[in-house]
Design a protein around this nucleic acid. Structure first.
Length: 560
DNA sequence: CTAGGGTTAG
């Protein structure tokens, strides 16, 4: 029998660890593993297995004889830290690091690297830098892997490429050479920022440094071409990768296929799939999920479901993501009923069903104004042992609002049945705005901030919209100005211009546009779009005042 | 210990 044939056993073994084998001081297992998902628990189980194999001759005998606690090694600590990092719990990672320190463990570079990486992924950049400095001041010399985490932070997250390059130079000063991983990380960041030309510059530098390129180096570039709409270039790069001695693999083709979906080149995808074997790669579940998602978003639900057959024929089984794509597809073509049915059948078919699948169907039901069905599904999922998350609750709040039960929705939030977030509050505010209850909107806006929830651009859109509807333009402008604390958002500006024009405030509109341009912000197309929409709605384009429209449009062109 | 791929809410 394989060690962990089922998750129940994995959970059981965790309890065993808790009781006998793994008494790391200060580590509250019961609390910690509650937050972990099944796959993380399985990972934990591996750690347990490792322990058992080293401490006991047979897996179970140790329980019978009553295993004695033994001290873990930094390596094992690191495995645990990685599990917490993967679960998105950097605080637990830091706590373990602290424990090691206090138990006079010799902290090594990999342990620090794991901790720094978990902070970077959680976007806690200042802390990541602090831990890195801490590592250096404790006398440890960071290796290429540790520095690569910093490269990732500066390149992929902060888009501070000069700093990323400084880290690479620093690696060289330490007497190491940046490897393919370090360079590929820099390339990935540049590509995400749309700076493909510079990414190719790095590629050339790698060739100059005789650093071997691999698939991971090229794939981000293919992706960047796809998202720029340069699909031909993407295809050409994939074809030419072979000549560079680096065959594109499933991931590369998945990226390309996603790009082809975006531009609707579905026949090309069919061809690529047909030729896959001869080209030396195998489509996987993700390949089909991407393709099906593309077909669904293109409105071709039937063809998407045909792919389901195709993948099953190849022995590929849909997972919860695949299922979700299909559920979402059904919800968007007015077949929520079928989505509900499919969700029910998935459990019979033993497909993986998770909270996201329930959220998708509940959201579909919410849009079809079936609030009782939403609540029924909430009950169903909880009965099945699937925990609702913040998305689930927000959908429930939304469906209460749609049913006109705004006060009930507010009550649920206030009762703290769950922790509301900015989306939850914004939905409720939106609905209070639509029924004209300005006082309640303002109250909620203040309340969410007391709760430590920061309003975002959508929230400000609601505020601006709400005050414009009531003719309180100066208040709307005040909220627009507050939104600037988090940087200029063209969407909020667009909403304000829309409201101002609908209210006939042409002078204010002009002043606003002039001011935006004067501050050096881009007059985004969404501002133009909402301006033109507002003019048409207002009827300016039909009457004598068309010259005002022309005047404003001329002005705008000059701003450009 | 470090790099590339798919899904859900306003």
């Amino acid at each position: 029998m394989p060690w962990f044939s089922n998750l129940l056993f994995a959970r059981l073994s965790l309890r065993i660890v808790h009781l006998f084998v793994f008494p790391i001081q200060g580590l509250c297992w019961r609390r910690s593993y509650c937050h972990l998902h099944d796959d993380q628990i399985t990972k934990f189980a591996e750690v347990v297995k490792h322990f058992f194999q080293r401490s006991c001759s047979s897996s179970f005998s140790c329980l019978e004889i009553g295993a004695r606690p033994r001290h873990p090694h930094p390596f094992e600590y690191n495995k645990l830290m990685k599990a917490f990092a993967r679960a998105g719990q950097p605080d637990d990672v830091l706590r373990l690091l602290d424990e090691m320190r206090q138990s006079n463990f010799e902290l090594d570079v990999p342990c620090y690297t794991t901790a720094i990486d978990s902070l970077v992924v959680a976007r806690r950049f200042e802390e990541a830098e602090a831990v890195f400095k801490d590592m250096v001041s404790s006398g440890l010399t960071p290796d290429v892997a540790a520095c690569t985490v910093l490269v990732k932070m500066y390149s992929c997250y902060l888009k501070q490429f000069d700093k990323a390059c400084l880290v690479l130079q620093w690696i060289m000063r330490l007497g190491c050479k940046p490897d393919v991983v370090a360079y590929s990380t820099l390339i990935a960041g540049l590509c995400q920022a749309g700076r493909v030309r510079e990414a190719i510059g790095v590629l050339k530098l790698m060739l100059h440094e005789q650093c071997h390129l691999n698939v991971q180096t090229y794939t981000p570039i293919v992706r960047a071409y796809c998202s720029n709409g340069r699909i031909i270039k993407a295809k050409r790069l994939v074809d030419s990768m072979r000549n560079f001695g680096c065959s594109p693999n499933t991931v590369t083709y998945n990226v390309l296929i996603e790009g082809l979906c975006k531009v609707g080149y579905f026949s090309d995808i069919e061809k690529i799939l047909e030729e896959s074997t001869s080209m030396g790669w195998m489509p996987d579940v993700i390949t089909y999920s991407i393709y099906m998602n593309g077909l669904c978003k293109n409105g071709d639900a039937n063809k998407a479901f045909e792919q389901l057959e195709a993948m099953l024929e190849k022995g590929l089984y849909p997972n919860s993501v695949t299922l979700n794509i299909l559920l979402d597809c059904l919800c968007h073509c007015s077949k929520v009923w079928e989505a509900e049915l499919l969700l029910g059948r998935s459990l019979e078919l033993e497909w993986d069903v998770n909270v996201v699948n329930y959220n998708t169907v509940m959201s579909g039901l919410c849009k079809s104004e079936k609030s009782s069905a939403v609540l029924k599904l909430l009950g169903d999922m909880m009965k099945k042992g699937i925990d609702p998350n913040i998305w689930t609750f927000t959908i429930v709040i939304h469906s209460l609002c749609r049913a006109g039960k705004l006060w009930e929705a507010k009550f649920v939030i206030e009762r703290r049945v769950f922790v509301a977030n900015v989306v939850t509050y914004t939905i409720l505010m939106q609905y209070f705005c639509w029924v004209g209850n300005l006082g309640e909107v303002q109250l909620l806006f203040a309340k969410m901030q007391v709760e430590g929830i920061h309003p975002n651009a959508v929230t400000y859109n609601v505020m601006v919209d709400c005050f414009c509807r009531q003719g309180k333009y100066s208040d709307a402008i005040v909220y627009f100005v507050s939104s600037l604390d988090d940087g200029f958002s063209p969407k909020v500006a667009a909403r304000l211009t829309y409201g101002l024009i609908r209210g006939g405030k042409l002078c204010d509109t002009l002043n606003l546009l002039e001011w935006i341009a004067g501050e050096g912000w881009v007059l985004d197309f969404c501002i133009f779009h909402s301006l033109i929409k507002a003019f048409c709605r207002k009827g300016y384009c039909l009457g004598m005042e068309i010259h005002v429209v022309c005047f404003i449009l001329d002005k705008m062109l000059r701003f450009k």
